[in-house]
Simulated assay, not measured.
Amino acid sequence: MADTKFLETAQGRRLAYHKTEGSGPIIVFLGGLKSDMEGTKAVHLEACARAREQGFLRFDYSGHGESSGAFTDGCIGDWHEDTLAAVLRLTDGPMIVVGSSMGGWQALLLARVMPERIVAMVTIAAAPDFTEDGYWASFSDQQKADLETVGHVELPSDYMEPYVITKRMIEDGRDRLILRTPLDLPFPVRFLQGTADTAVSTDTAVRLLNHAKGPDMQLLLVKDADHRFSDGPCLGLIERAVRDVVGDA
């Protein structure tokens, strides 16, 4: 396994990454909230890319994995800046963007600022606007008051310790919303979604499909697949989706 490398961003953050050299278009993997680049999906896709001698990039947002900073200091905008830094400094030419959960939101934000670089996109349980439509919309009056007075609330997680959701994350998320304004995806897109996902609903996946505009978009609903979407069959579906969007099914 290659050693982890680090990138210093203009904002003073130190991002950990692994890059596999190879032919293009390079695959850029964007992980989920509180996930890291050692996740099953990222490592599996990297191995697939290496077998095909294709370029691959995975990295940790600030406050995640081996990168600098604390998770509670970050927000969607910070992680968007991290994504831009990684893409602009570590890649050139066409790329295939693969985004998981919050990484799906990041992939869509990336498509807004550099659609000319993206030749295809695959999302897995994409979670656009979840700070507003998921967290804020479900907060009780007491939780909203705590956000103002304490500055954060804690939410239970099915997968790890509670999520600490800060006032800054909620407010910043409102500046990054995807589903309220036009969303053009002028390249092949495959949205993958499990029907047993308790973090992102199938309604969200359908809403995203209906909202986005593009020449080649498909939504695949996988019965009984959960939010992790990382067992053997699901990994196979992700791999096939990546190959499909570049015409190599």
Rank of each mutant, 00 (worst) to 15 (best):
A2T: 14
T9L: 12
T9K: 14
Q11Y: 06
G12V: 03
G12L: 07
L15H: 12
A16C: 15
H18Q: 14
K19N: 08
T20D: 15
E21L: 10
G22N: 06
I27V: 15
F29N: 10
L30R: 01
G31N: 13
G31R: 03
L33G: 09
M37N: 06
T40N: 09
K41I: 11
A49S: 14
R50M: 13
R58F: 11
D60C: 02
Y61M: 07
G63W: 02
G63F: 05
S67T: 06
S68D: 07
T72Y: 07
G74Q: 11
I76G: 02
D82G: 08
T83C: 12
L84V: 14
A86Q: 07
V87C: 03
L90Y: 03
T91C: 15
G93N: 13
I96N: 01
V98S: 01
G99P: 02
S100V: 14
S100H: 01
G104A: 09
G104R: 02
W105R: 06
W105M: 08
A107E: 01
L109I: 06
M121Y: 08
M121R: 08
M121L: 13
V122A: 03
A125Y: 00
A127R: 02
E132K: 08
D133V: 13
D133R: 12
Y135M: 13
W136N: 04
Q142Y: 08
A145I: 09
D146H: 12
T149W: 01
G151Y: 03
V153N: 00
E154R: 07
D158F: 13
T166E: 00
K167L: 10
K167R: 15
I170Y: 01
D172N: 05
D175I: 07
R180F: 08
P182E: 13
D184T: 10
P186R: 09
F187Q: 05
F187G: 00
R190Y: 04
G194Q: 11
D197N: 10
S201E: 12
D203K: 14
V206A: 05
V206C: 05
N210H: 14
A212Y: 07
A212K: 04
P215Q: 12
D216S: 12
M217V: 13
L220V: 14
H227L: 11
F229A: 03
G236E: 14
I238A: 00
E239G: 02
R240Y: 06
R240C: 02
